[in-house]
Design a protein around this nucleic acid. Sequence first.
DNA 1: ATGCCCCAATGTTTGGGA
Length: 264
Amino acid sequence: MKIATYNVNGINARLPVLLRWLTETAPDVVCLQELKAPQEKFPQQAIRDAGYSAIWKGQKSWNGVAILGRGIELAETRSMLPGDDQDEQSRYIETIVNGISVGCLYLPNGNPVPGPKFDYKLRWFDRLITYAASLLETHTPTILAGDFNVIPTNLDASQPERWVQDALARPESRAAYDKLLELGWIDSLRKLSPTQSIYTYWDYYGYAYQRNTGLRIDHMLVNSELSEQVLEAGVDRHVRGWEKTSDHAPTWIKLSRQFTNPVG
DNA sequence: ATGCCCCAATGTTTGGGA
């Protein structure tokens, strides 16, 4: 079974790239971020025609998250992060599929620092830490996947010095990410590649992809019950080289468990 | 230090991204 996460940077602008990638790699479950579309503008039919059902939480212009399931209907278990009923930004959606709890998240960017956007990022992170701690108590195989907007260590940026003052690498952001790991969440890609520089994002400008000046900011955190089933983890970096592509590349893990759906 | 590029909106630019 393969689970992936992909910040598409506009679901409608990215539809041809998304469909091409789905057809090419046939992931079983896909977490999407940055739909940049209101609820009614999600391209449900095109995705269904490609063999995937979807649940999504849209928002006009910004944010927006979705989960796709290959040949299986998904039941939404949650569509916002607990802890702030006033939060109107669409940044979390969750389902349970094939016995795995799947949380799809788009953490705030937080720039500029300091400022209200950075404060919001840290508050959102605090809510995530609280909720993530409660998830561990269920002992259900669980994954939290998405764009965390955090460069966890200097190994995760090609030019770490450039990001020192940035919300993606600020000590407060890194400390919050570290807190998740201290709770027991496991960074799948880093566990399988402890010393390798792996990037999931490259700037549109400055030929960043061609120069491989990237960041690792999309993460797949698993609990111990799921970690023991992770066989492989990787990034489909070639997708970043396609026409009209996102600035992020799809990131995935392969599990030992079989994906059982009506289609097979 | 700044811009570069790209998206959505109802634009002839702006805000947001990272």
